[in-house]
Amino acid sequence: MKTAIPRVLAAAALVLGTTVGAAPFASAAEVSMVSVVHGIPGQPVDVYVNGAKTLDKFEPSTVAGPLELAAGTYDVALTKPGEPVGSAILRNQALSVPGGKNLSLAAHLDAAAKPALTAFVNDTAAVAAGQARLIVRHAAAAPAVDVRAGGKPVFTGLTNPKEAKADLPAGAVEADVVLAGTSTVVLGPQSVNLKAGSATIVYAIGSAEGKTLGLASQVVDGLGGAPTGMPAGTGGAADTSAPWPLLSGFALLLVAATAALRRRSARPAGDVAR
């Protein structure tokens, strides 16, 4: 992912430079990292940002980006591959991008199975040591659902286009999606690996009626999660502080010896020979 960043920056610069030249220069704090998630089964698209083609033949169940976009309002359009922006199948001419956030722009079906564009703000706050964040988003033409982990409901009554999230111990969870309040499984079970210090975002996509329900996912790294300390010794035998007791003992002896020497040398020689 890291290596991709310069290319993304270059791509974003190109997009911004050629099409958003008029946009005010934004400081780093006002720039958001924007991923684009394709959650409409069966329909590859071209994605236009402010009239410029940014993604070519973007396939369903893929994630693109992140793009670096300055805070502002964008015209985002999705067309069938090769078709002009004017005949977009989905367009938001005033998509608001806040500054300094991590966003996911999801193309998905709404509850009524119509294509929709939803901008989700990804919670990238640091996670505690050994923890991972699980974010679940309902982006499918389907009724309210519960998400269960290990058979127990963890998120309940989730509806399109809402999300639910929790920080969990890193590791594998066995998850499934059921119709809200029932044990009728509509998706899964699915093993999900939650990496320490990352946010795993899982989207329910597709259509229940069209039998295209599925899961899409993206992972946002860099949320911390490293141990806060390494306590690996209580004995003290490896202490490397200066041996002050030893040194001061020597110093005292030295002083005492010097003093004794002075006293003796101050006396007449006969005394010493006594």
Partner: peptide
């Protein structure tokens, strides 16, 4: 723009 499959990360 880099594009990756949106597969759920499995153990």
């Amino acid at each position: 723009v880099p594009t990756v499959a949106a597969t759920v990360p499995t153990p």
